[in-house]
């Protein structure tokens, strides 16, 4: 037995060493660590593209087509990121987009010209999202169920409105289509819109009280409530925001396909949610980044592109995507473990 009171007299650094810099942003270290892996994955896919189809892959036109492909789901992914960080889930995004595209291309709406059509799509999207939000926040429905119901109902309504027919955008409203045909510096306008939405989303999430509250509401709703945050109102706004993104996405898909249709955006919810998860956002809420989601989405889009370029089977493509989701989540879990106290 040692002398009871003898203090250890070794010298050495004190117990509390200089704290490591955690990065300016509250989630700095997370984003950095998480994004590294995603960037590596993207680099790998690019290498695969360069090796297998050097001539077709590395062209501007292919790059532009990848980005255009990513733009529509990308806008939706931004909204989905907010909802998921806020502790919810939105399964109805694809259906809302379809409904918005149909509503904006009905004969009646088309009479008012392209601007009104775009506004109509955005309002329909936001409004439908708001209904989701009301049901979830004030009607206390589980998000999964409320948005699942909306998925079915919104698509049904879209079919009803369009009589299951694809609605063409009339030539006098071709301004909408020009979003995808007009190029600035070789890049179609819709890609700029996508970039703008990402930038605004990033600012909203990282620089405003709205974003901070989103993390709080998703991370610990009880603590958020007791800190004086109106959790229900915020939850409602998150779904409205997601709906708004779907409305914008509807405009983009109308531009790309020159149509409004009840079949637009089928299974987009899965791609969007998968992109968010791959990007490192926790499905349980409270943690995640916009940049991660967008990188996740790029991975998905690149895979699609590579499979098409190489003339491979779309079923194999789905299998590859499924594997990627699993691998990404496994990697994330390892990251989490290392950080857990």
């Amino acid at each position: 037995m040692s002398d009871p009171t003898k203090p250890r007299s070794d010298t050495g650094p004190p117990g509390i060493a200089l704290p490591g810099r955690a990065g300016g942003n509250p989630l700095g270290r997370l984003t950095e660590a998480g994004h590294m892996g995603l960037l590596v994955a993207i680099a790998l896919l690019v290498v695969v593209g360069l090796v297998t189809k050097p001539a077709a892959f590395a062209t501007t036109s292919n790059l532009v087509s990848i980005l255009s492909l990513a733009a529509t789901i990308g806008v939706i992914t931004v909204g989905a990121t907010f909802v998921i960080i806020g502790g919810g889930i939105d399964l109805s995004v694809g259906a809302i987009m379809a409904l918005a595209s149909v509503w904006a291309t009905t004969v009646a709406t088309q009479e008012f010209g392209p601007v009104v059509m775009a506004i109509c799509a955005i309002l329909v999207g936001t409004g439908t999202g708001l209904v989701n939000g009301l049901l979830i926040a004030y009607g206390r429905l589980v998000p999964f169920i409320a948005t699942l119901a909306m998925l079915v109902a919104a698509r049904g309504l879209a079919q009803r409105m369009s009589d299951r027919k694809t609605q063409l955008i009339q030539p006098e409203n071709s301004a909408i289509v020009e979003l995808s045909t007009t190029r600035v510096l070789g890049v179609p306008l819709l890609v700029y819109i996508f970039a703008l939405v990402v930038a605004l989303g990033w600012v909203l999430l990282n620089r405003t009280t709205f974003g901070r509250r989103t993390y709080a509401v998703g991370g610990n709703p009880e603590a958020a409530r007791l800190a004086g945050i109106d959790v229900r109102r915020h939850t409602m706004l998150l779904y409205a925001l997601s709906g708004l993104c779907c409305g914008i996405a509807a405009v983009l898909i109308m531009a790309r396909t020159t149509t409004g249709s009840s079949t637009h955006g089928d299974l987009y919810e899965l791609d969007a949610i998968a992109a968010v998860i791959i990007g490192g956002t926790l499905l349980t809420g409270g943690r995640g980044t916009i940049i991660g989601s967008i990188l996740g989405l790029l991975i998905f889009t690149l895979i699609t592109n590579l499979f098409i370029l190489n003339g491979l089977n779309t079923s194999d493509q789905l299998i590859a995507k499924g594997l990627i989701i699993v691998v990404a989540v496994l990697l994330q879990r390892r990251n989490l473990k290392e950080r857990a106290p």
Binding site: N220, A223, A224, L226
Partner: peptide, 10 residues
């Protein structure tokens, strides 16, 4: 922990 803190946040 349950009522006040956002553990992941700064």
């Amino acid at each position: 922990k349950a009522q006040a803190l956002l553990l992941d946040q700064s």
